[in-house]
Design a protein around this nucleic acid. Structure first.
Length: 507
RNA sequence: GGCCCGUUCGUCUAGGGGUGAGGACGUUAGAUUUUCAUUCUAGAAACAGGGGUUCGAUUCCCCUACGGGCUACCA
């Protein structure tokens, strides 16, 4: 085994729909490991199942990776020394290896039709195509050489199956789980090459990982049970010395109840499961993604990295560079992790708080554009972002938290003011307007001082007029410090709002 | 059913033969914010069970239970 061979890892999705959280985490771990080891990160499209192929899914995967900042070094998009990177375009290369396995006695042709297999399965509850029954079935192990040749000649539909050995044990080391063993008597003679000439996943991964010189194979734990097939294949093909190290990642589970996290859970529980919005080309249904929900990619990545990995310290916020430096396979946990959306929100909140206004601006501008707000003064917008940033869990919260900086309140929380309203208060605010008229470029502290002074003169408790003032400017009981708001929107606008609100309060 | 993997607060996890079992999210209470959020302080909250091994097990071994995955000409 060439211990020092160059690190080359791959993410190998099938283009069948949205890109799941767990998928992105697998990409992330691949990417971190490759960057840290000075290796290559490859994206290979596993589109061997034509019936499941979904238009647009491949482009979508590229878009997701780009949003996350996890750009592959080699892919169907940028090419590379081992092109093509789409399995459907590599179709011709698989057959020869399957034939070679048949030649060497490690695989065989099987002519059983789908309905024949179904019949077997319904007759025998635990039917398994394997050593116990392969000599009774319709395959080249039982048919004469002449018969097999003739069927092949006539193009009679057939598959190639691996011939799993009897009474043997396949043992291998998984970098996360340690040593894992399987009794070969319990492993099926899986199909390697389908009737349509396409390889199944089992053949395709092994062939491509070998051809693409993959050094470490990261994949979800759901693949663990089929690992013995792949290991046998590496052996039978004569490539055992080049077999990658196996890294089976723990699964991401539903937050409540049992099972693997699925798109449906997101719909049901109200959080995204896909990285970005996914539109089903057939139904037109849109499944919401983390990006559109208002997640910052850095927060999304950070959250994912900590789902099943930690550096052993109490640090939770990591930049991509820190993750690259600190990632290690042996600190990945063995057990599945239930996805906690609350924690995901916390990460996002932290990232928005520490983000500088400039980096938030492009997205804020597009939110404002949706609301038909034209921004004439960039400086003003910067101030607004700076003042409300800390209150945002999602970028989408921006409008809700700051609309009053761009327009007069649409409605007032009258229940909080009207019952306690009095002429004294009306008088107070009218006087306030007068005072503001004489001021210019006042700081918020100055406004506050004037406000309090007036209250004292009018013998009103500051608290009595504070809340009404806020509601006049904002519409409700929320938002940043009132005088900061007044100062920012300007005295003229403040006065205007007092006047409008006064009518609403006294009407 | 069979096989494989797993099991520390509600959740993500640290730890590891002798610990007050640590942190974070969430949660509760209080302070600050004359609003709300932020922030701060404090609190509640966990080693699945049973056998071993050991002077001593949450930690090592075995069994059980529970959870998960796989069991397609899908990946």
């Amino acid at each position: 085994m060439s211990e020092n061979k160059k690190v080359r890892v791959r993410f190998a999705p099938s283009p069948t729909g949205g890109l799941h959280l767990g998928g992105v985490r697998t990409v992330l771990f691949n990417y971190l490991f490759a960057r840290q080891q000075g290796g290559d990160f490859i994206l290979r499209i596993e589109d061997t199942d034509q019936s499941r192929y979904v238009d647009g899914a491949e482009q979508y995967i590229f878009d997701c990776l780009e949003w996350c900042g996890l750009i592959p070094d080699e892919s169907a998009k940028v090419g590379g020394p081992f092109a093509p990177y789409r399995q459907s375009e590599r179709k011709s290369t698989y057959r020869q290896y399957a034939e070679q396995l048949v030649q060497d006695g490690y695989a065989y042709y099987a002519f059983d039709s789908t309905s024949e297999l179904e019949a077997q399965r319904s007759q025998f509850p635990n039917f398994r195509y394997g050593h116990e029954n392969r000599h009774l079935l319709n395959n080249s192990l039982n048919l004469s050489a002449a018969e097999v040749a003739s069927r092949l000649q006539q193009n009679i539909p057939h598959v190639i199956r691996i011939k799993i050995p009897v009474d043997d044990t396949v043992t291998f080391t998984d970098l996360i789980r340690g040593e894992v063993s399987f009794d070969t008597n319990l492993v099926d003679d899986k199909v390697l090459l389908k009737a349509d000439g396409m390889p199944t996943y089992h053949l395709a991964v092994v062939v491509d990982d070998y051809l693409m010189k993959i050094s470490h194979a990261f994949r979800g734990e759901e693949w663990l049970p089929s690992a013995p097939i792949h290991i046998l294949l590496w052996e039978y093909l004569g490539w055992k010395a080049d077999m990658p190290k196996w890294v089976h990642l723990p699964l991401i589970l539903k937050p409540e109840g049992n099972g693997k996290l699925s798109k449906r859970d997101g719909d049901r529980l109200g959080f995204p499961v896909y990285a970005m919005n996914w539109t089903d080309p057939k139904s037109g249904d849109i499944t919401r993604g983390f990006r559109e929900m208002g997640f910052l990619p850095e927060a999304f990545i950070n959250m994912l990295a900590l789902l099943g990995w930690n550096d052993g310290t109490e640090q939770e916020i990591f930049t991509m560079d820190e993750l690259i430096a600190k990632f290690s396979i042996d600190r990945v946990s063995r057990s599945g992790a239930k996805f906690d959306f609350e924690k995901a929100k916390w990460f996002n909140h932290e990232y928005i708080k520490k983000a500088d206004t400039a980096s938030l601006k492009p997205q804020i501008l597009s939110i404002l554009k949706e609301k038909q707000i034209e921004i004439a003064d960039n400086y003003y917008l910067d101030k607004v972002i700076a003042i409300v940033k800390d209150r945002l869990t999602f970028l989408q919260d921006f409008w809700e938290q700051s609309s009053f900086f761009f327009q007069q309140p649409v409605e007032y929380d009258l229940n909080s003011v009207k019952p306690k309203w009095s002429d004294v208060k009306t008088d107070f605010f009218n006087s306030l307007i007068g005072i503001f008229a004489g001021l210019q470029n006042a700081s918020s502290a100055e406004l506050e001082a004037q406000f309090k002074k007036l209250a004292e003169e009018k013998a009103i408790k500051v608290g009595e007029v504070m809340l009404p003032f806020r509601i006049m400017l904002v519409g409700g009981k929320f938002g940043p410090a009132v005088f900061d708001i007044a100062q920012l929107i300007g005295l003229q606008e403040t006065t205007k709002r007092i006047e409008t609100a006064l009518k609403a309060f006294t009407g």
